[in-house]
Amino acid sequence: MSLRDHIDGLEGGHDSTGDPAFDREKAIALAVFLVPGMTLFGIFSVGPIVYSAVGSFFSWDAFTMQSFVGLDNWFRTFRDPLIVHWENIRQYRFPMGALTQNLLWVVLHVPISTLLGLGMALLFADLRGRRILRSMVFLGFTVPTIVIGLVLLFVYDPQAGVFNELLRVVGQGQLVRNWTQSPQVAIYALVAGGIWVQTGFNMLLYSSALSAIDPSLIESAKVDGAGPYRRFRDIIWPLVKPVTAVVVIMGIIWVMRVFDIVYAAGGTAGGPNHSYSVLGIEVYRAAFEPPIDYGKAMVVALVQLLIVAPLAAYIARMN
C-alpha cells in the first residue's frame, strides 16, 4: 500500500513519457497486478523476517516482546552448549551443538552429493532408458522429507533394517546397531540419507547442463584427437562448471534448512542427548516447546539465514 502511494506520487514525474493520462493508467495497472500478491508476500514472508530481525534484540515473555536488550540474545545463544558445545568439539564427541553439527552436515553432504550427482549425470547421459534411470534416482526428492526420515529409521533398524542386513551379509555383523539412535554415529547415518535424496536433484541439474552442450563441440574435440578423459576435462567440465556453483549453493541451503529428517529420527530433541540436532530443530524447540525462548529462536533462525544469504546473493549476481 505504501507501494501504491509511491507509484501515485510518481505519477506526475514521468512527463518525459508524454501523456500523463497514460501514466496514471499504467500506475493503476501496476497496482492491480502487484498489490494483492505483494501484500500477502509482505505480511507472511517479509514481515516475519523483519519481525525476527528486530525481535532478536529484545527480551521476550513467552510470545510477547518486552524490552530492548541489545545483543544479549545473541551472546546467550552462542554461549549455549546446545548451539556450540566447545568442550565436546575439542574432544570430537557428540553432541557438539546444533550449529557445529549443521556445519559438519554441510561439509560432508555437499561435496559428496555434488560428485555423485555429476557422476550419475555423466553415467546416464547417453544410455537408453536414461529417463527411467534418472526418475528412479530423482524419486526421493519428490517424497515428503518426513517420509525420508522415517524410511531412514526403517533402513537403519537393527532387526528390520536392510542396511544392517547388508552388514551381516558382508560379514561385518559386529557393526550392526540402531544407527539413528547411536549418538556418536547417528549424524553420519542421517547425512548419508540426505545425500541419498539430494543426489537425484544434483544429477538432474547436471543432466540438463550436459544436454545443453552442443554435441558438435564434443565431436569437434573427438576429431581434434581428445580421448574421453580430455574431452571431460577440457570441454565438458568447463561448460558445466557454472552449474556446480548452483548445485553447491542449493545443497548448502537445503542442509541449513534440514529439519524433517532429524525430527523423524530424533524428535524435537534432535536425537539422544541432542547428538544430531540441527539449527532448525533448535528454533522449533526454543519457540514452541516450553520453556519458550523467542529471543533465542529468532537468533538461531537468523544465523541460518546469515550463513546462506551471501551464497544466494552470489547466485543472484551470476545472472
Binding site: S216, E219, A221, K222, V223, A226, I235, P238, L239
Partner: peptide, 27 residues
Amino acid sequence: PSDRNVAMVFQNYALYPHMSVRENIAY
C-alpha cells in the same frame, strides 16, 4: 576420428566457448 588425422569444420563452427581464440586453435 582422432586416429584418422582428419580435421573438420562444423556447420556451427563448434568453437569451444570457454576458450580464447588462441586456446581454441591450440587445442
